[in-house]
């Protein structure tokens, strides 16, 4: 069977997923569940319960053999289906092959310099990524992975060989804070940080700042401690939490102040980070 992955959406032009103009591919499904997730509907695969089928105002959803079928042409993108879904899933996905995605992405040349695959968690589909990236590399398109860092990159040397770099989320440093925020284990993130930094494969480290839920001061100190003299070589992106798309306890949470962000930049500089981006 051909290698396929569930594709949530493809954004032809992204300003915020790596250097230059890039096409972003979002895969469906995640192995953690962050409280601050902007796209909670990308976290799980559809279980076929059918609640959304009844709610769809455009008649774009139907059921067959226990699955929900999405009619892309009838869909009006009103988002009702993902709002009524109780499983943090979306019926609007397509299981596609690397060749199919490449066919779409290639049509965006010569305007883009590469693609960035994100999620969900795209590292759930390493074989798919390797094939897609190999196709991209063959025509000179760049390849970046946007990952939550919970899956060991050391086990995927073949994928790293065709990847330009990893944009690595470091959501928290303390195991309890990480677990409360994501439901997952921070240990593999730290292993990946050390492994990828040593290989020089980190495109960007990403730390999201939200008052009371992440502990960015601790995260910055933890990363700098682990990276040691490599700290200055890593680009660090400090991102303000914004509530758009967020559901659950943080749906109405405020963004951190500019003062807080500025203080974090100063802290990061003291810790040895030299290339710091605020977003």
């Amino acid at each position: 069977m051909a290698c396929r992955a569930p594709v949530n959406r493809i954004i032809p032009f992204s300003l915020v997923d790596g250097p230059g103009a890039r096409c972003s591919v979002f895969l469906q499904g995640c192995n953690i569940a962050c409280t601050y997730c902007h796209n909670p509907e990308t976290q799980r695969l559809c279980v076929g319960c059918g609640v959304c089928v009844e709610s769809c105002p455009a008649g774009a959803l139907s059921r067959a053999d226990g699955s929900v079928i999405w009619d892309r042409t009838a869909c009006v993108a009103c988002d009702t289906c993902i709002e009524v879904c109780e499983h943090r899933a979306s019926p609007r996905i397509a299981w596609q092959t690397p060749e199919e995605i490449f066919g779409i992405v290639r049509g965006y040349a010569p305007f883009i310099r590469g693609i960035t695959v994100s999620g969900g968690e795209c590292m759930l589909y390493p074989g798919f990524l390797r094939e897609l990236f190999s196709l991209c590399k063959a025509v000179g398109l760049g390849t970046l992975i946007d990952s939550n860092g919970t899956i060991d990159f050391a086990a995927h040397e073949d994928l790293l060989a065709v990847s330009d770099g990893i944009m690595l989320d470091v959501k928290a440093w303390d195991p309890d804070v990480f677990s409360k925020l994501t439901g997952g284990d921070v240990a593999p993130v730290k292993r990946n940080l050390a492994f990828l930094a040593e290989r020089g494969r980190i495109e960007e480290l990403r730390v999201v700042v939200i008052d009371g839920w992440t502990d960015p001061e601790d995260t910055l100190a933890g990363m700098a401690g682990l990276l040691g003299e490599r700290t200055g070589a890593q680009r660090l992106r400090l991102t303000k939490f914004r509530r758009f798309g967020v559901r659950g306890p943080l749906a109405d949470a405020p963004s951190p102040t500019d003062e807080r962000m500025a203080a974090l930049v100063r802290l990061a500089e003291r810790l040895g980070f030299a290339d710091i981006v605020l977003s």
């Binding site: 032009f13 300003l15 915020v16 890039r22 040349a109 305007f111 883009i112 977003s279």
Partner: peptide, 17 residues
């Protein structure tokens, strides 16, 4: 978007293309 000011290379890529 005003945020494009933060990724001028993206605009430049599009112009080159």
């Amino acid at each position: 978007e005003p945020t494009a000011a933060g990724n001028l290379d993206a605009l430049l890529d599009v112009i080159k293309g």
